[in-house]
């Protein structure tokens, strides 16, 4: 080997120590976490229960599935859609002022840092806690669910809105200045058209997630398909669980497919 090549070979940056350190940390965390794995299965054995559950889910309660009254799967799914829909709409509206207050190009540093901190707090408090708080406001039922979703949507939606706001093309504002437009006209015709497509796309994405998360609300009596689902599970009626889950999975898959199409259209024109 020539000297030059040998020199170059030795120049190769050695990241060995970094990788070793990182690997060590992960391994230590892993060993520590392994204590989380405990088997405290009930006496009659988990496997048997698992068998029952799978059998139950695979033979869904057709009567419940094709029941069109307010206790049936269809109505419950519809109620869930309504909760997620309203929660998303209100959440999206509430996110707009938050987003502007979080944008470095709009407000001074102290303001956006404080707003960002506030949004992290809002986002981190589990939805269940909000649910319980709102049940105090509206009583148990889907109304509490809507209020909860409105609040929990703010965290992610406003964060994504900020990126859109920061990406605004300011050239158009200069052009509108040259046309003699007022500040209102600049916002209405120069800024809003730039924001609306991406904002809508983000909102639709959030609707997808809210539909999925709406099950949790059932835990605290905030309406939707969650409560009958969890009730059925706690009373080991796996056939009912099966029919509800089938309805939910199909609904979410359909909504996801539609929302992907819509978003692609919004962004690409």
């Amino acid at each position: 080997m020539s000297e030059m090549i040998e020199l170059k070979l030795n120049e190769q940056p050695s990241k060995k120590r970094q990788y070793l350190l990182l690997g060590g940390i992960i391994l230590a965390m892993l060993l520590w976490s392994l204590t989380a794995i405990t088997f405290s299965a009930p006496d009659d054995g988990g496997a048997k229960i698992a068998g029952n559950i799978i059998k139950g889910i695979l033979s869904p309660d057709m009567q419940l599935l094709w029941n069109f009254t307010s206790q049936g799967v269809f109505y419950l799914l519809f109620e869930t859609i309504c909760i997620a829909f309203l929660g998303t709409i209100f959440g999206a509206i509430l996110s707009i002022p938050f987003a502007f207050l979080m944008a470095p190009s709009v407000v001074p540093k102290p303001v956006y840092l404080i707003t960002r901190f506030l949004v992290v707090v809002i986002r981190t408090i589990p939805s269940l806690v909000y649910g319980l708080m709102f049940v105090r406001v509206s009583g148990p039922g889907p109304f509490a669910g809507v209020l909860t979703m409105s609040l929990t949507s703010i965290g992610m939606v406003s964060k994504l809105y900020v990126d859109v706001i920061e990406d605004i093309d300011r050239g158009i504002l200069e052009a509108m200045d040259a046309m003699g437009c007022t500040t209102f006209e600049k916002i209405r015709f120069g800024i809003i058209p730039q924001l609306i497509a991406n904002f809508s796309s983000i909102t639709i994405y959030r609707f997808d997630m809210n539909l999925r998360d709406a099950t949790i609300l059932g835990l605290v009596g905030a309406g939707g398909i969650g409560s009958p689902l969890i009730f059925a599970m706690n009373s080991y009626r796996w056939h009912q669980v099966g029919s509800i889950l089938i309805g939910l999975v199909i609904l979410i898959l359909i909504v996801e497919a539609i929302s992907n199409k819509l978003r692609a259209k919004l962004v690409n024109g």
């Binding site: 093309d169 050239g171 158009i172 200069e174 052009a175 509108m176 040259a178 046309m179 003699g180 437009c181 007022t182 006209e185 015709f189 120069g190 058209p193 730039q194 609306i196 497509a197 024109g269």
Partner: peptide
């Protein structure tokens, strides 16, 4: 009453061509 043209066009890219042209009449 004075038109202005820019190097970077300064159009609203997410709007239709006609929508951009009509902005001029907004005032």
């Amino acid at each position: 009453k004075i038109g202005m043209i820019f190097q970077s066009f300064n159009l609203i890219t997410r709007t239709t061509v006609l929508g951009n042209v009509l902005v001029s009449l907004v005032p």
